[in-house]
Amino acid sequence: MKRTKSIDLTRMRKQPRFRVTKLVAAVAGASLVTGCSSDSQDAMIYKTLQDCTKTNPGLEAECKAAYEDALEEAAKTAPKYRTQNDCEAEFGRCVVYRDSSTNLFMPLMAGYMMARAVDRREYDSTPVFSGYGHLYGGYYGADGTRYGGRSSAGSTRVSVPSDAFKPKPTVTRTISRGGFGSTAAAKSSWGSSSRSSWGG
């Protein structure tokens, strides 16, 4: 047989009301959409690496790996602010993102959340940030999800959605848009019966 053996037709069917203007919202990837899940899981938030090792003797290596992963993740996915003031208004303590040439600020990681991964022996981890101002008193994830109330203790048990450890999108501030597409715009002003595809 020289053709595709079978095609899942239900997957190929489109809603008749699919519209171009709703493009991004309509087809955003399934695995990065959060908030619909009713499943929850227990997790621990540790303020420091020591808080983790103190609570989990024998898991020093796991605590350290989880801490380092969270730190790396924080740089990528934490919300970024144009000014230190804007950042501090929501997270209290902020640091310069990457290097000073970018002039962006991001909240300091207040701790990290860790849980044993389902079906695996490994641990998942993700950074948490401590809210300030209207967010005061809570631990938050990089995408703004509230994970629980902040406590004075070094470790806090929380119940979080099961997708809390899914990777968060990396975000940054956009300086300008429209730097691609000018050639197509220029060439499409040349009138013809063209059906204006930029493919071929």
């Binding site: 899942d8 997957r11 493009l23 991004v24 087809v27 955003a28 990837g29 399934a30 695995s31 990065l32 990528k76 970024k80 993102y97 990457r98 970018t102 002039n103 962006l104 999108p169 990396t170 975000v171 940054t172 501030r173 956009t174 300086i175 300008s176 848009r177 429209g178 730097g179 691609f180 597409g181 197509a184 715009a185």
Partner: peptide
């Protein structure tokens, strides 16, 4: 169908993000 999460955007909407990234309309890198 291959298990990849996707997002459709328009070429004209691509942004220059701080840190020399390209960004989508939601500022996502």
């Amino acid at each position: 169908a291959a298990g990849i999460a996707t997002k459709l955007i328009f070429v004209e909407d691509i942004g220059h993000g701080e840190g020399d990234w390209l960004t989508d309309p939601d500022d996502q890198v």
